[in-house]
């Protein structure tokens, strides 16, 4: 009876966005009369945190606190068009569109402030706390709340902006196959350490080391969430989940929710995660997408770790205890002295 330890790794390149007939998203920004900037979208935040990232992009571009940003999204009847949040495209497409809209709104904001303060717009800066001030003469300033009121009631200006990011459709060059289908690629590597129980075939993932190169971590805490949540899902797919474990037969198929196996809080490994940044020239502040890729590399890493631990090579998920045990039985039979 032994617990066999093994280590395996796998790496992945993952595209940001997609090709299809072109890949656009739009954004609109307008200031209310009290200095809240509403970002209008029809992009869905399904929990990945797009609203937060968008607010950060808007705030950073406008030069205002993130508390001044209100993201109003996901009414596809009325919002500016978005292809959707999938293909790891949200941060990149929507972020870029928001930056463009915010940049236009900032120009208007500074133009109105210039009139209010009787200076050139070029002499103005934002201090990040809500003030527009004269560079080098900070006491000459106006708060965004007063500025927004003035724009609306005194100057008759809308502090607003429009944005769109389009990744144009790209066709392959017939002679060479060259093409430019995605805006950029993120990269990752996972090293998995597992323990295999050689009497039962049970695989336990002890540790996962994940390194992700994602351009720019606009929100490091949310990036960490994606990496950890995705690693769990990868482990779940690798070792547990199946609708039809012995396709095409329905034997052992889960018949209800309780029977659809996923690891619980008691089954999670130690994580050691590292984020690398090589900004993408076409990404919002250099960011690439990280939405989907986090479940990928853990799976072959675990398969390779199982092979390293006990010599069983599995290439069909899930790597159930039965598959491992049958593999071990085969290996042991091959090594048996009674085998002819």
């Amino acid at each position: 009876m032994a617990k066999l330890r093994g280590r395996g790794y796998a790496s992945v390149n993952y595209p940001t966005g997609m090709n299809l007939g072109g890949d656009p998203s739009q954004a609109l920004i307008h200031a209310t009369t009290t200095g809240t900037f509403v970002v209008s979208l029809s992009s869905v935040d399904l929990g990945q945190g797009l609203k937060t990232v968008v607010a950060q992009c808007a705030a950073e571009t406008l030069g205002l606190p993130v508390e001044n940003i209100l993201v109003d999204t996901a009414d596809t009847d009325t919002g500016p068009h978005c292809m959707g949040t999938f293909a790891s495209r949200g941060t990149h497409r929507v972020g870029n569109a928001v930056i463009m809209a915010a940049a236009e709104a900032r120009e208007v904001m500074l133009a109105v402030a210039a009139e209010e303060l009787e200076v050139d717009a070029g002499d103005l800066e934002t201090d990040g706390t809500g003030f527009v001030q004269v560079t080098g003469a900070r006491e000459k300033r106006i708060h965004i709340t007063d500025l927004a009121l003035a724009a609306h009631f005194t100057h008759g200006r809308t502090i607003s902006g429009r944005g769109i990011f389009l990744k144009e459709k790209n066709d392959p060059v017939p002679e060479t196959g060259e093409m430019d289908p995605d805006s950029c690629q993120a990269h990752a590597c996972t090293v998995a350490v597992v323990e295999v129980d050689d009497e039962t075939g049970v695989v336990e993932v002890l540790r996962m080391h994940n390194a992700y190169e994602i351009g720019r971590a606009l929100n490091p805490a949310m990036v960490a969430q994606q990496v950890e949540g995705g690693a769990w899902m990868g482990m779940s797919h690798a070792l547990f989940e199946a609708t039809e474990p012995y396709y095409p037969a329905r034997d052992h198929g889960p018949t209800d929710f309780n029977e659809y196996l996923m690891p619980g809080a008691a089954d999670i490994p130690e994580y050691h995660n590292a984020i690398l940044e090589r900004p993408a020239g076409n990404g919002p502040f250099g960011a690439k997408g990280i939405g989907e890729m986090t479940a990928n590399a853990p799976i072959p890493a675990i398969a390779n770790a199982i092979f390293d631990a006990c010599g069983v090579r599995l290439d069909t998920m899930p790597f159930t205890p039965e598959r491992v045990l049958r593999g071990l039985d085969e290996l042991r039979a091959d090594r048996s002295p009674t085998k002819e």
Binding site: Q225, E228, G264, A265, A266
Partner: peptide, 19 residues
């Protein structure tokens, strides 16, 4: 803590931050 939430499924976080 892990036992107390053993009846609760999460698909997003991988449980660690919750614990």
């Amino acid at each position: 803590v892990v036992e107390a939430i053993s009846g609760n499924v999460c698909r997003c976080t991988g449980y660690g931050p919750i614990v």
